[in-house]
Design a protein around this nucleic acid. Sequence first.
DNA 1: CTGTTAGCGCGTTCAC
DNA 2: GTGAACGCGCTAACAG
Lengths: 346, 346
Amino acid sequence: MDKTDSRSRKRHRGQGRVTLADVAKAAGVAPITVSRALNSPDRVSPKVRARVEEAVEALGYVPNLIAGGLAAAGTKVIPVIVPSLSILTFIEVIHAIGQRLESAGYQMLLASTDWDLDREADLVDTVLGYSPSGVILTGLRHRPRVVSRLKGWGRPVVEIMEYGESVIDMNVGVDGDSLGRAMATHLMARGYRRIAFVGSNLDRDYRGRQRMQGHQSALEQAGFDASWVLEYAEPASYAVGAQALKEVMAMSPRPDALHCSNDILAAGALLEANRQGVAVPGEVAIGGYLGLSIAEHLTPRLTTLAVPRAEMGTQAAELLLARLAGGDPERPRRDIGFTLVEGDST
Amino acid sequence: MDKTDSRSRKRHRGQGRVTLADVAKAAGVAPITVSRALNSPDRVSPKVRARVEEAVEALGYVPNLIAGGLAAAGTKVIPVIVPSLSILTFIEVIHAIGQRLESAGYQMLLASTDWDLDREADLVDTVLGYSPSGVILTGLRHRPRVVSRLKGWGRPVVEIMEYGESVIDMNVGVDGDSLGRAMATHLMARGYRRIAFVGSNLDRDYRGRQRMQGHQSALEQAGFDASWVLEYAEPASYAVGAQALKEVMAMSPRPDALHCSNDILAAGALLEANRQGVAVPGEVAIGGYLGLSIAEHLTPRLTTLAVPRAEMGTQAAELLLARLAGGDPERPRRDIGFTLVEGDST
DNA sequence: CTGTTAGCGCGTTCAC
DNA sequence: GTGAACGCGCTAACAG
């Protein structure tokens, strides 16, 4: 009586969803057997498996991954933390990561820091709260708290975009300094002498700044003037590129080459040059960085430093998956490199 | 003795993370008090609150959202399911959704169906397993299983991109038929007579097909030939647009206007026309759809149907949040509309 | 191959 | 304003 009574004041917390226990009852087995039938089918007799599958179907059971996560101390979720979702570069990397991760049964939890390292730190705390299987972060610079938390975490962490020495765990990226140097060197080799760097959002985007620094050191080492810089506060857009070209054409003396910190800026500048009838590279040369597909469709084709973004994403995901599979991936630090694609704009 | 013994074979399931109980011990209060201090600070005395906060800080406690989710029957996660992450349109919408959601303390769980409705159905099941607070889906067409699951779910669901009658719950989008008609009507009004529709991935992208059908009905109603269609199997890219232009220039009779099913195709065609010296709109007019920022930077500026994508994302997020806040949002079905941006390409 | 037992870490319920 | 007990739904551990 007593027991029945205490039981009768039903909890209404659950969502009324079909649970594993319901399936077990329907199939006439213990809950754990249902769990096994679903998660490791081989460890259960075919007969039972069939009965369970039938019950699952009949009841429309959908596993509660939250509960599973709590019990197993981990969900099949991989948070991916990037500075911005409005930059094409990140999108392509994310896309590649997502493809690879989903094919392995993981879900991608996306979050953007809006270029703010403090926000990144908060986000890391938040997403760790979901007991994810691993984490993917952007860049090598983080708040100390992020680094210490993640280092002691015991699960795979991959830092992407930037390649370097001091990593939390694993790393796939490219060296910003080399990128900046490569384009500067190319432009100097072509005979340009007044080479301006065009960047945007540089105060927040430290990787963009790294490229600029690479550019400047290369120029300085060659004895060139490295002080030609056009900086814009807002994020890169065709409009900013167009604006840069206009300003350049009004300068005197005027730069003879523009090293744009990404292809959006470069394309914007080039399209504006087309519109104004400015000869490229006759009056001014334009070089970009990224290897966006638009580069090759412009007239003239844009010279650009192509970074294999999709490849970077895929490799990041694979490093993670390898570790999750219990392996110890070879070369956990990878410089993905880049290629100078010579168009006709320089 | 006995008890101690049985207790001594410790479980090692937990990750050794700091738990709420640890904080409670350190602060000398009960776990529930810590919970309250963190979640509803007003319900706890300032003194205790301070002690708890101190302990949290000292131990570096990070809440386990999984456990919280299980107990509270819900996580602050919003899955967003889209067909593809490589299409700019979706990115911009996702970006806007993410901004709004994160500002309200929710995380976005991103998944892509790769244009496959069966995969969508599976994904819905999976993400529902995370007991999310709500769901955002793309389009109005889904497998029956998705519709029935979600209708009985009891939490907010928003379908985006497409606007229509039969929705699961709430809806923010635009009517594909109207879009197709609008551009066709514009082109006819401009005096073009042989108007070709250029589309890609139409067998999977039914919304693209809707635009084509709108286009065709408009032409037919005006007594024009609606059979000019260039279809490509691969997804939209500058390259496909360029290819379309080449093919068109080789046709005879030749279309005098191209209605491209998005701006990427249109831009690709226009850039190729520039390269080949084909006069636009003299020899062939080109109209796009989307209102991507590149449209206005091309020469000539591209005529396009601009859809307020960011606005669509923001509104979708707000509908969801309104419902989560307990309100009953006004106009839970919203036609976000579009604008004809007349460039010089038509 | 299957079942029993005991939590995972937290929030709800009800008592003080 | 604070605490004790209980259970969310599932799985790890251990037995049989």
